[in-house]
Amino acid sequence: MRQRRRLLVGTIGVVIGAILLFGGGVETQLTGLAMALGSAAIVTFAPRLRHWVEALGLGVPLGALLPVDDAVLPGAILLVTVLFQRFFSDRSLNGLPFRVSLTSRRSVCFDAPANEIWTRLIPGESHPEDHWTGTLMDFDRDAEDADTLHLRYRNAAGLFDEVTVTFLDCTWPSHCRYYIERSEGHFFEESVMDIRFTELESGQTRIDSELRHEPLPLRAALARWFDDSFGDEWDSFAASIAHRSDWSLHRLAQDGAVPRDDPKHEAKVIW
């Protein structure tokens, strides 16, 4: 499960808070067990509420350290937890000046030739319906720059997210590097995707990828780290190639949008 960072932080944080409150007895053990089970249930069945997991993991121990009377301590812990939850989930905080760079790397092996994977993975290289996400509606090439695409994806609200992709290097079917621009309200996000295809043997391909975000607001960088959204999307892509069940966060967030399947191929995420 790609949410293990979130689960570990949430569970360990709550256990530390329980130790501060109750000591190391049975109450602490039961609290840790309840937090682990509750966190797993949230990220599996209610992913939109997932930020409460890390909020509890940070809010409970910090709230327990506050120098307040025992009578108001539960309220203080709740207040600190809510503040952390708002920090992770409120996009209006993206306007804060502090920025953090974030880079994600993944390697995947596919039991399929590189030229077939290329058309499914690289935007604009096939019909929108054949794109692996199942949510790409259409795309247009920029009238002034043939290397730039304007893509429209269907989001969970039934509306459209617009993404601009500019190819920096495109050598079929071995290497592709492109610049990504997307906006969310007043927040503008930029990143660079680098993908290399290596033929290991007849019909098998290894893909090494790197997604490098331009400096992000601290809230957005931490939220993406907890989500491990890049690894989650790779799991979705691997599952769409391998034709197996996939319960990654990316898929659940699409409210029923299912990556397109290909029963002929198998895939394995290495890292």
Score class of each variant (00 low, 15 high):
residue 215 P to V: 06
residue 73 L to R: 15
residue 240 S to Y: 07
residue 236 S to G: 13
residue 86 R to H: 09
residue 9 V to C: 13
residue 210 E to V: 13
residue 141 R to A: 07
residue 56 L to G: 01
residue 90 D to R: 07
residue 252 L to D: 00
residue 68 V to R: 00
residue 187 F to G: 03
residue 152 R to T: 14
residue 39 S to H: 02
residue 2 R to G: 13
residue 165 V to W: 02
residue 180 I to P: 02
residue 168 L to W: 04
residue 163 V to F: 02
residue 184 E to H: 15
residue 13 G to W: 05
residue 180 I to K: 03
residue 171 T to A: 12
residue 62 L to Q: 05
residue 166 T to V: 02
residue 131 H to D: 11
residue 180 I to H: 03
residue 7 L to C: 04
residue 134 G to C: 06
residue 160 F to V: 12
residue 200 L to R: 15
residue 112 A to K: 03
residue 55 A to Q: 02
residue 12 I to R: 02
residue 225 W to E: 10
residue 145 D to W: 01
residue 22 F to H: 13
residue 143 A to Q: 14
residue 209 S to R: 02
residue 250 H to T: 13
residue 42 I to R: 01
residue 88 F to H: 05
residue 38 G to V: 03
residue 119 T to D: 10
residue 134 G to D: 05
residue 34 A to P: 00
residue 19 I to G: 08
residue 35 M to D: 04
residue 3 Q to S: 15
residue 132 W to K: 01
residue 48 R to Y: 10
residue 183 S to D: 14
residue 158 G to H: 07
residue 55 A to P: 02
residue 111 D to P: 00
residue 173 P to K: 08
residue 153 Y to H: 10
residue 258 V to L: 14
residue 16 I to K: 01
residue 149 L to I: 05
residue 91 R to M: 10
residue 164 T to W: 04
residue 23 G to Y: 06
residue 193 M to Q: 14
residue 186 H to Q: 15
residue 163 V to I: 14
residue 63 G to W: 00
residue 144 E to R: 14
residue 198 T to C: 05
residue 256 G to P: 03
residue 192 V to Q: 09
residue 154 R to T: 06
residue 37 L to A: 15
residue 236 S to H: 01
residue 148 T to V: 11
residue 13 G to N: 09
residue 177 R to Q: 13
residue 122 I to M: 04
residue 225 W to A: 11
residue 242 A to I: 03
residue 210 E to Y: 02
residue 4 R to A: 15
residue 192 V to E: 12
residue 142 D to N: 13
residue 55 A to I: 03
residue 137 M to C: 12
residue 71 A to S: 12
residue 57 G to D: 03
residue 255 D to M: 12
residue 37 L to H: 03
residue 65 L to A: 08
residue 161 D to I: 13
residue 152 R to E: 10
residue 258 V to C: 08
residue 255 D to F: 11
residue 124 G to C: 06
residue 36 A to I: 06
residue 259 P to S: 06
residue 257 A to I: 09
residue 129 E to I: 10
residue 177 R to A: 08
residue 127 H to L: 11
residue 139 F to C: 03
residue 32 G to L: 06
residue 168 L to G: 09
residue 246 D to Q: 10
residue 34 A to C: 09
residue 234 W to H: 07
residue 70 D to S: 15
residue 158 G to N: 09
residue 33 L to W: 13
residue 67 P to R: 04
residue 178 Y to R: 00
residue 62 L to S: 08
residue 6 R to V: 12
residue 114 A to T: 05
residue 115 N to Y: 11
residue 238 A to Q: 03
residue 45 F to T: 09
